[in-house]
Design a protein around this nucleic acid. Structure first.
Length: 640
RNA sequence: GCCGGCGUAGCUCAGGGGUAGAGCAACGCAUUCGUAAUGCGUGGGUCAGGGGUUCAAAUCCCUUCGCCGGCACCA
């Protein structure tokens, strides 16, 4: 007698040890049909698993997150089976579940071409129709290695070699195809259903190492039903519509050009947006007790040798020559800031010094990494270095976290994940120093009311760091802010201050940024808002559009009044129908349209229409200006 | 950097050995209009760059550059 406890707490006795499928059938025929796997005391197993003793179980269906993962995992296996049938010379390697789908990496002498993908997908649907049962088999390790070697699957054999010795190996058989896999799996290929689609073809290195051979990866997406699949595909289309590269062009913000890979040509509107963000940051930093500096672009090689960049980051640095000297274009501002710190003698009374620079940096990013504004070679950071004593780390960190969260809020981001990266295996500095630095960072984030996720061993070699990740409207994550504790650079570049005791001491440097690079952050803003920027950031905030020439004189008065109030205003006096003008300015995502015709000119009013809205609001000119001035001024928090 | 795809007018794209095309945009003329596209007309090209095959190349081949999707990288 086996007692099976169901999720609702009820207990069912079975005469003989039942399989998962039998339990599902005992509960009901609907569930039996939907059943994909069984959860036994919290662990997912094949539906065929026989439950030998009393247990708490749950039947896994496509509605579970786990069930969906099973579907995706099986989709990968079915794809591998399809590939083996169509292209028998191909070797299979690994095929995991990923967010929204799955992939499988294949090894073959010639890469797949896009038409192959269609054939593979069609074959997958056939395999689902065949409804092949999946059977788990447990093999001895040596036998498994021998088997995979014998059928020419050397990657699988290599995988088994990397598994712990003495462990039995599980294989799953479906039709003619047999694959190394931990499982669990669906009972048969028919359970996969047809809500999947192969998405893209890509190269990927074996075991993620660029020294290894490149495999052919096929990505796919898979869902519990057609409706979910369609929703996902629609979401991808929506994401494409908010692509900052497309919107940047459509809205006339910037362009990129072959003659300057990884560098941005900012057009007037884009530059206005950039400046608005920069001036906002400048105001916030001033309010938070920072001083702003500006340092050279080209610096002698000797500085970079001293800082350690020449040794570690040479390949990412652009260099130039002048009179037989090698100069490097700065990839970072920090060594320059230490130079300013070193001028004259600094007293402990002056610390902390918060030194900010909107410094233009260049990094020679690999060509394949470049991506619109998100990954560029020339960029400007909202960079600052806080020179302080060890004792000041907690309060400076707390103050920084507060400032950062306020800034994100003002830009419209409230969902922020904080990652805490602690000491890496290879590091500089004594363990006691690390203890102090890590504790200080952690305490300070707590004091600032922030939860952190541990990122073990991912700190910089010179100190622990915090990383601030924003989540945008459609759920994507962007790492923007950072705070790094650095004991090394002050040492290498010989920065000192005179302490209370009259002796020389090393300051600690906190490297910190909130937006990261302006280029990238503006890209994120564009995508977050799908181009519909909040009023205070919009490059053109208002347009005054006339209905007839008769209102032109008055329209000029209205535009002048708005400009006088500091609102970025354009005037549209063109001889076009008002429908045309409204459509054009709406497509351009201009937040405020003020329509004026004979009636408004007569009454000294405006008809205000907001982007996306249908209704118009008739306001007296003076009221409109006063109200819009207030709205367009932007966030007030922390303003200096 | 690596694998695959792509590069034709400002944008979106058709054309695939024999005179370079469309829509939108731009420009001109007419229209003076009440909340998401008025009509007619005009101009616009090193078919990414270089080399080759051919009587003839946007088209076929080689190569360089750039872009796109991944991978690796992201100090």
């Amino acid at each position: 007698m086996v007692q099976i406890t169901l999720p609702d707490g009820s207990v069912r006795p079975f005469e003989r040890p039942p399989s998962g499928a039998e339990i599902a059938a005992a509960i009901g025929p609907g569930l039996a049909k939907a059943a994909l796997a069984i959860r036994v005391d919290g662990k997912i197993k094949d539906l065929a698993t026989v439950i030998e003793r009393d247990a708490k179980i749950a039947i896994v269906t496509p509605k579970d997150k786990d069930g969906l993962d099973l579907i995706r995992h099986d989709a990968a296996h079915v794809m591998a089976e399809a590939v083996k049938e169509l292209f028998p010379e191909t070797q299979v390697t690994i095929g995991p579940v990923i967010e929204n789908g799955f992939y499988y990496d294949f090894a073959r002498p010639t890469p797949f071409v896009p038409e192959d993908i269609e054939k593979i997908e069609a074959r997958m649907h056939e395999i689902v129709k065949r409804d092949e049962p999946l059977k788990r088999e447990v093999w001895q390790r040596d036998k498994a290695v021998g088997f995979f070697d014998s059928i020419g699957e050397k990657y699988k054999a290599e995988l088994i070699h990397s598994f712990p010795a003495g462990e039995d190996i599980s294989l799953y058989r479906q039709g003619e195809f047999i694959d190394l896999c931990r499982g669990p799996h669906l009972p048969s290929t028919g359970k996969l259903g047809h809500a999947f689609k192969l998405m893209k073809l890509a190269g990927a290195y074996w075991r993620g190492d660029s020294r290894n051979e490149m495999l052919q990866r096929i990505y796919g997406t898979a869902w519990a039903d057609e409706k979910q699949l369609k929703a996902y595909l629609t979401m991808l289309e929506e994401a494409e519509k908010r692509d900052h590269r497309r919107l940047g062009r459509e809205m006339g913000l910037f362009h990129l050009q072959d003659i300057a890979p990884g560098a941005v040509f900012w057009h007037p509107k884009g530059w206005t947006l950039y400046r608005t963000a920069l001036e906002y940051m400048r105001r916030r930093l001033e309010g938070a007790g920072y001083v702003e500096v500006n340092t050279p672009q080209l610096l002698d090689r000797s500085l970079w040798e001293a800082s350690g960049h020449w040794e570690k980051f040479r390949q990412a640095m652009f260099t130039s020559e002048a009179e037989e000297k090698v100069l490097a274009i700065k990839p970072m501002n920090c060594p320059c800031h230490v130079q300013i710190f070193r001028q004259g003698i600094t007293s402990y009374r002056q610390l902390p010094i918060r030194m900010a620079e909107f410094g233009a940096c260049h990094r020679n990013e690999p060509s394949g990494a470049l991506h619109g504004l998100m990954r560029v070679r020339a960029f400007t950071q909202d960079d600052a270095h806080i020179f302080c004593t060890e004792a000041q780390i907690p309060e400076e960190t707390k103050a920084f976290c507060d400032l950062l969260m306020g800034v994100y809020r003002d830009f419209g981001f409230t969902d922020v994940v904080v990652k805490f990266s602690d000491r890496p295996a290879l590091r500089a500095g004594a363990d006691e120093t690390w203890d102090k630095a890590e504790k200080a960072l952690k305490d300070a984030t707590q004091a600032a009311g922030l939860e952190t996720i541990l990122n073990p061993g991912e700190g910089a070699f010179y100190g622990p760091k915090l990383e601030f990740v924003l989540r945008d409207t459609i759920g994507r994550e962007w790492q923007c802010g950072t705070l790094q504790v650095d004991f090394v650079l002050p040492e290498r570049l010989d920065a000192n201050y005179v302490g209370e005791d009259g002796n020389k001491h090393r300051p600690v440097m906190l490297h910190r940024a909130i937006l990261g690079s302006f280029e990238r952050f503006i890209g994120i803003l564009i995508e977050h808002y799908a181009g519909k920027l909040p009023l205070w950031l919009a490059p053109e905030q208002a347009v005054v559009a006339t209905i007839t020439d008769k209102a032109a004189g008055y329209a000029k008065t209205v535009a002048a009044a708005l400009k006088e109030a500091g609102i970025r205003t354009v005037l549209d006096l063109r001889n076009e129908k008002i429908d045309y003008k409204i459509r054009e300015h709406s497509v351009a995502k201009l937040p405020l349209i003020l329509v004026v015709g004979a009636r408004e000119a007569e009454e000294k009013s405006v008809a205000l229409r907001r982007l996306g809205g249908k209704a118009q609001e008739i306001l007296a000119l003076g009221d409109a200006v006063a109200r819009l001035k207030e709205e367009a001024a932007g966030p007030r928090s922390g303003a200096a």
